[in-house]
């Protein structure tokens, strides 16, 4: 058990900074309280949860979030894979592409959200694609595309690492065996890089689940599409309803956990320590 001496401080701190606020969230979620302390604060049991779970707007937000997650992940995987394949074969360009590939990820999400929103509301995309007033939903779509843009590079890096681990003879052997390009992709390359794809999917999905900047920047009164994380934010930090916000936070955490619990076994994510 010598190992635990090295491990204990980190685990302890990690538990304190995660379990403590989660515990507080659970406790808060059973009360009706505001961050300011205005209004009477009282224990309401699971009322907050029943409110949330029976709320149409919450489930709409969850559905919108999941749709965004699905679209973002699929787009990032497809684009990332295409770019990774191209980058792998053009080793001459590596010094440049290595920097280029992670540059979007370095741009703050809030900046990306603002400029992508501007692109469709007043900027170049309006002229390029003949957009009419896209409204808050259109702007939200644009910021989501911006998120895809930001995340594609990192996805490509992950997939490239996975691709580089596919032995070249595996591919040449398949060629020698007469596999078509399509068969090589579906039967050799993709299965062999499945671990990388699995991790990229999980990581990007949970990252897409928590994006907040785009929804914050594009929200307008009467907007028809809102995301779950935005609703949590709005409740907690605009309405200051901490009790309700905490209950939503707990639900959001459970949602993330469910998503992970779905993805991890389905994709057989495993990383041996």
């Amino acid at each position: 058990m010598r190992g635990w001496r090295w491990l204990a401080p980190a685990v302890l701190v990690l538990l304190v900074v995660t379990v403590w606020p989660i515990g507080r969230a659970v406790w808060l979620s059973l009360t009706r309280s505001t961050l300011t302390g205005a209004g009477d604060q009282r224990f309401v049991g699971i009322d907050n949860y029943t409110d949330i779970l029976s709320s149409r707007s919450w489930w709409l937000a969850v559905a919108a979030t999941l749709a965004i997650v699905a679209v973002a992940v699929v787009l990032q995987l497809v684009l990332g894979l295409a770019f990774a394949v191209a980058l792998r074969r053009l080793t001459v360009a590596w010094p440049v592409t290595r920097v280029l590939v992670l540059l979007p990820f370095g741009l703050l999400a809030i900046v990306s959200a603002v400029v992508w929103r501007d692109a469709v509301t007043s900027g170049f995309a309006v002229d390029w694609f003949g957009l009419d007033d896209v409204g808050p939903t259109g702007a939200l779509v644009a910021t989501t595309v911006g998120e895809v843009w930001r995340g594609t590079g990192i996805t490509a890096v992950i997939l490239l690492a996975g691709l580089l681990r596919v032995p070249t003879t595996l591919i040449t052997s398949a060629i020698a065996d007469g596999a078509t390009a399509r068969q090589r992709l579906t039967r050799v390359v993709l299965p062999a890089m499945a671990p990388a794809i699995a991790v990229a999917t999980t990581y990007r999905a949970l990252d897409a689940l928590r994006i907040l900047e785009g929804p914050l920047v594009t929200d307008a009164p009467g907007a028809s599409v809102r995301t779950a994380s935005f609703v949590v934010w709005d409740t907690t930090f605009s309405s200051f309803e901490t009790g309700l916000g905490a209950a939503m936070s707990v639900v959001l955490l459970l949602l993330a956990g469910l998503l992970a619990a779905f993805l991890v076994p389905v994709l057989r994510v495993r990383r041996v320590v």
Partner: peptide, 25 residues
């Protein structure tokens, strides 16, 4: 594996969910 799982879970957790309780604290 448990410790590692904790680390990964914390890494992928929606941090926003903790912001409210932290603020309250």
């Amino acid at each position: 594996r448990l410790v590692y799982g904790l680390v990964v879970a914390a890494l992928l957790m929606p941090v926003l969910a903790l912001a409210g309780p932290f603020a309250d604290q």
